[in-house]
Amino acid sequence: MTQSPNRLVATIFGAVYLLVGVLGLFVAGGNVVGEEGGLLLGVFQVNHLHNIAHLLIGAALLIAGLRSTPAAKATNTTVGAVYLLLGIVGFFIVDTALNILALNTADHYLHLASAIVLLGVGLALDRRTTTARATV
């Protein structure tokens, strides 16, 4: 059995986002929600709500990647679209009360990069699994 690109990307991104969520719990300190947060890898600002989001997204991607190609494709596309929106909106909510995830510029670029990969794979690859039709 060959691994589909969507399953592979979902599994890898899921594992990475789970790891990032766990590591972030150690650096967030007492910052649960709001503009302030600890620095993960000295660059990415996180608070506990941000880490919980990473854990949930990581779990969704990992489960979908291990489950099936259609599940991975749908999850990659959905998470990619959410990250695209978050990456764009993030630039406008920095330094406002709406920044409840303690986002910073590095986070925005990482979310946009994740969106490009997830949307690219989700929309462009494994087309046969969702567009195959029965012949009559």
Rank of each mutant, 00 (worst) to 15 (best):
G21K: 12
V22R: 13
V22T: 14
G24T: 09
A28Q: 04
A28V: 06
A28M: 03
G29K: 08
G29C: 06
G30R: 06
G30L: 04
V32R: 03
V32C: 00
G34L: 09
E36K: 09
E36Q: 12
G37T: 11
G38E: 05
L39T: 08
L39G: 10
L40E: 11
L41E: 02
Q45W: 08
N47H: 10
H48T: 10
H48Q: 12
H48S: 12
H48D: 12
H48E: 08
L49K: 05
L49N: 06
H50A: 08
N51V: 10
A53N: 10
A53V: 11
H54G: 07
L55Y: 02
L55E: 04
L55V: 07
G58K: 08
A59N: 00
A59G: 11
A59I: 10
L61F: 02
A64I: 03
A64W: 01
A64R: 02
A64L: 01
L66I: 00
L66W: 01
S68T: 01
T69K: 02
P70N: 02
A71M: 06
A71F: 03
K73M: 01
K73E: 02
K73S: 09
T75A: 12
T75W: 01
N76C: 14
T77I: 05
T78L: 13
T78E: 03
V79H: 08
G80H: 14
A81D: 11
V82S: 13
Y83H: 01
L84A: 15
L84V: 15
L85R: 08
L86A: 15
L86E: 15
L86H: 15
G87F: 13
G87T: 15
G87I: 14
V89C: 07
V89K: 11
G90K: 10
F91M: 15
F91R: 15
F92D: 08
I93S: 05
T96R: 00
L98Q: 13
N99G: 09
N99Q: 13
N99H: 09
A102F: 04
L103S: 06
L103V: 13
A106F: 02
D107Q: 00
H108F: 09
H108I: 14
Y109T: 13
Y109N: 07
Y109G: 01
L110Y: 15
L110Q: 05
L110M: 12
L112W: 10
L112N: 14
A113Q: 09
S114I: 12
S114G: 09
S114Y: 05
S114D: 03
A115I: 10
A115L: 12
V117N: 11
V117K: 09
G120V: 03
G120A: 14
V121L: 07
G122R: 10
G122A: 06
G122L: 04
L123A: 15
A124R: 09
A124E: 02
A124Q: 12
L125K: 01
D126T: 04
D126S: 11
R128Q: 15
R128W: 13
R128G: 14
T129Y: 14
T129G: 04
